[in-house]
Each structure stands twice: as C-alpha cells, then as structure tokens.
C-alpha cells in the first residue's frame, strides 16, 4: 500500500520537476534571445534544417490528408446530398486543425528528436562543458537558434501545408469524385475567414516553440551515455507530441 502511494508521489514529483525545468529553460531562452551576441549563422543553419529540409515531409502528409479528407467527406456528405459543402469542410479542417497539428507532429518526429539526440550527445561527450569552458552559454548558443527556428518556420510550413491540403482535396473532389470545379472552388473560400488562417498560424508557432524547446531540454539533461541519448530522443518525441495535442485543445478553445 505504502509503495503504491510512494510511487504516485514519485511520479508527481518527477512531473512537477520536469514542468518546472521546462519553464525555467523557456525563461532562460527568452532572456538570451533578446541579448547580443546574436548567432546569425546558427540561426540560419537551424532555419534551413527545420524549415527547408522538412518541406518533403510536409508536402506528403498535408497533401494526402487533404485528399483523404475530400474522399471521406464526399462519401459521407453524398448520403445527405450535401456534396457542395465538401470544399468548405476540407478547407476549414485543414486550415484550423489538420495542417498545424500534422506539421507540428511530423516536425517533432523529424527535428525535435534529432535535436534531443544532438544535444544529448554533446552532453555525454562533454561538449556542453566545453562550450561553457569557452565562455559560451549553451542556452544562448544551442537553445535560442533552435527555438527561434521553430517559432518562425512552423507557421511557414503550416501555410504551405494549408495550400497543399486544400489543393489535394480539390484534386480528389474534382478529378476523382466528379465535383464541379467552379462550385468546389467558390465553396472552398465561401465560409473561410481570415481568422481561420490566423488560428492555424498562431497554433503552429506555439507548436514550434514546444517541439524545439522540448527537444533541447530533453537533450540537455541527458545522463548515462549512448543509452541515455536514446532515451532522451524517445522522451522528447513523446513529451512534445503530448504537449502539442494538449496545447491544441486549449488553444482552439481560447482562440475561437
């Protein structure tokens, strides 16, 4: 009995400690971000790595999701003779929800994990100590460029995802299901609001922050050699994905 309560206690302690660490590092990242020297080259490198290199993944996921969305809703809506609204539904779901969340999760898997692995390896091979010994704050040198890249690039990737998803839906509806292209197009934009676009963009910026910071923090606190790096990588992906899904709910509730 005792040990059950003990374990629950240990779990909550660990949870609160991890949360505290996360917000402490967020604070430190924020204060270093506005302070020179700015690592221009590092910032660029991370933007390319996170943004440009993720385009193929974003292309595939959002486009196919748009296509599947059109397929599914077309089937369903046909039953109630509402085919004309397929365009609206696809566009709304892609812009408000699917594109930001899918892009967030995909980039977490691709980049958040590799950030944890990279920084974790630096930790276990004393490169973090070496950075400090060279009078360079690891938060400034490692965290800031990555987190900035996340906040800047995720919205751009999401906009790309929006376009591709909507286009994918259009292709399926018009080419495969025989929807009228003109009707579909006008219907796509008919109920769309600038806020729908904004909501997705704001969300994705938050996701970008979450996935990069979580990757960095998990890597930074790696212990225990190569095995530790593996654990840090896995836990970065799992933690960031869970936080993204939770944040998604609350942001959606909050934003509109």
């Amino acid at each position: 009995m005792i040990s059950v309560f003990e374990n629950i206690g240990i779990f909550f302690l660990a949870f609160f400690e991890a949360t505290g660490t996360w917000f402490t590092m967020l604070w430190r990242t924020a204060t270093w971000a506005i302070r020179p020297p700015f690592e221009g080259r590092e910032w660029m490198r991370q933007m390319v790595r996170l943004g440009v290199d993720s385009i193929p993944v974003v292309f595939l996921t959002t486009m196919f999701t748009g296509m599947v969305m059109a397929l599914q809703t077309f089937n369903g809506f046909q039953r109630v003779h509402a085919e004309n609204f397929v365009g609206s539904v696809v566009a709304l779901s892609i812009l408000r929800e699917l594109s930001p969340v899918l892009v967030g999760l995909m980039v977490t898997g691709r980049v958040g994990s590799s950030m944890a692995a990279e920084i974790g390896t630096m930790r276990v091979t004393e490169q973090i100590d070496a950075l400090k010994a060279l009078a360079t704050d690891p938060v400034q040198y490692l965290f800031v460029p990555r987190v900035i890249a996340g906040i800047v690039m995720l919205p751009l990737l999401t906009i790309l995802g929006d376009a591709l998803g909507v286009w994918g839906g259009y292709l399926v509806a018009v080419r495969l299901m025989g929807a009228n292209p003109v009707v579909y197009q006008s219907n796509t934009f008919q109920f769309l609001d600038v806020n729908d676009l904004w909501s997705g963009i704001v969300k994705s910026a938050v996701f970008g922050l979450i996935l990069t910071l979580t990757g960095c923090v998990r890597g930074y606190y790696t212990t225990g050699g190569a095995e530790g790096v593996g654990k840090a990588t896995t836990s970065a992906v799992v933690t960031a994905s869970v936080i993204i899904l939770l944040a998604d709910f609350f942001l959606t509730k909050l934003l509109f």
Binding site: Q127, A130, K132, A133, A135, T136
Partner: peptide, 21 residues
C-alpha cells in the same frame, strides 16, 4: 551570466578532447 563572462580568462582541455563534432 557573470560566470560566463569570467570564463574568458580560462582555457581548458578535456580528457577526451570534447571537440565540437
């Protein structure tokens, strides 16, 4: 932050090199 600045006075070589790979 002060510690960070202070460390410019030091040079340290690590047991395994600790080069940035």
């Amino acid at each position: 932050r002060e510690l960070n600045r202070f460390r410019t006075r030091f040079g340290m070589s690590f047991q395994e090199g600790a080069l940035f790979d």
